[in-house]
Design a protein around this nucleic acid. Structure first.
Lengths: 195, 195
DNA sequence: CGATTTGCCTAAAGTCATTAGGCAGATGCA
DNA sequence: TGCATCTGCCTAATGACTTTAGGCAAATCG
């Protein structure tokens, strides 16, 4: 009866908040309907189905992350840029664990290609312009940075580093140092001695 | 009627196979019952609930991974050991994507402490004995390696590196080179200039 | 101000998780 | 071997979530 004003955007936004509160895998059409005090079926006029809802949340998260990254990189280069970008991911994951998890959702190729995901790769590449890498090493480095950022954040959030000294902030700082050092002294491909 | 011979072990094993076939998040008590051609309720005499089943699969995966890692590390050191350990994770994830996903399941602290998860950290530490690192740098390095291995494998499997040259094998090889270089020249903590 | 569109609702069917209680086949003991 | 017990799988039932079909009323538009 009373029209609540549901839209795909509001549902996505609320879904993202829900994800941060209860975990991305607990984001359900039912829970979202409850949050709007509306019957479940009503949501199906605005999102195709549960999968569609989750995809929208993932795209929202990717966009937010990319926006933050762009902001953080502005006017920085070298190690400063490296640390800024790295911290964007780590901080976002801490502030918005559900959204961060959503950003890892596997998207179908077309959706992925149209998503903010491509901006992430572009920004990492931009960051690497502060170091002296040419293709294909630049791509290798992009992948390394992606791996470290994502791997560290997900292990840290998953409790993989818990209950042990030294604290994770110290490790994070040292890892950024190490990456900076590595990028400034990127090793040449080893000679194939079997040639 | 006909007794099928269900046991927690057989269910766990079959659950792991199911995970590899359809994905860990599609592992369901119902699907498992179907696979044994048995009614759903019958499984509840052998596993407490769905969560219990998933935890058992996770523990199985962690154990298999640790066994493979121990095997791969035997008799190796330095870069050879580094590559061997790294490849264990990558190959396992490719052969058993569902189990690999299961191994990432967040366990409660006691379960985690009793799991093969601790062996993984120990082995990484053992590997680092081939490099010249002392605490707390060794712990930092353990975390870095864990991050890179997990991050790379999960991005690669998630399609994050798709549709782009150079191929992921080349990147993987160069990342291992880079990590070896980095560990042999681990940078000292930067002096705090604000002191 | 009536007609149409739109938004939320009721109803219903299917899947999955979980618990309670029953029956029959396996096991153990004389 | 025969009987009693126990164990393993079953039926039945409840409740949550997903999804579709079709209805009614509120908003909107001419």
């Amino acid at each position: 009866m009373a029209r609540v004003g549901l839209t795909p955007e509001r549902l996505t936004q609320a879904g993202a908040e829900l994800a941060d509160e209860v975990g991305f895998d607990q984001v359900t059409v039912s829970a979202l309907a409850r949050r709007f005090d509306v019957k479940v079926a009503s949501l199906y006029s605005h999102v195709k189905n549960s999968q569609d809802l989750r995809t929208r949340i993932a795209l929202l998260a990717l966009t937010e992350l990319a926006d933050r990254a762009a902001d953080a990189l502005a006017g920085r280069s070298g190690k400063e840029a490296l640390a800024a970008l790295a911290n964007v991911y780590r901080d976002y994951a801490r502030e918005h664990p559900g959204r961060y998890a959503a950003a890892q959702l596997r998207l179908d190729p077309q959706t992925a290609a149209a998503s903010a995901g491509v901006r992430h790769a572009q920004m990492t590449r931009a960051l690497l312009r502060g170091y002296d890498l040419t293709e294909p090493d630049q791509t290798h480095a992009v992948r390394l940075l992606g791996s470290v950022f994502h791997g560290y954040v997900s292990l840290e959030m998953g409790g993989g580093f818990s209950h042990s000294a030294p604290d994770t902030d110290a490790t994070w700082a040292r890892i950024l140092d190490a990456l900076d050092t590595l990028l400034r002294n990127w090793p040449a491909p080893p000679t194939d001695l079997r040639g």
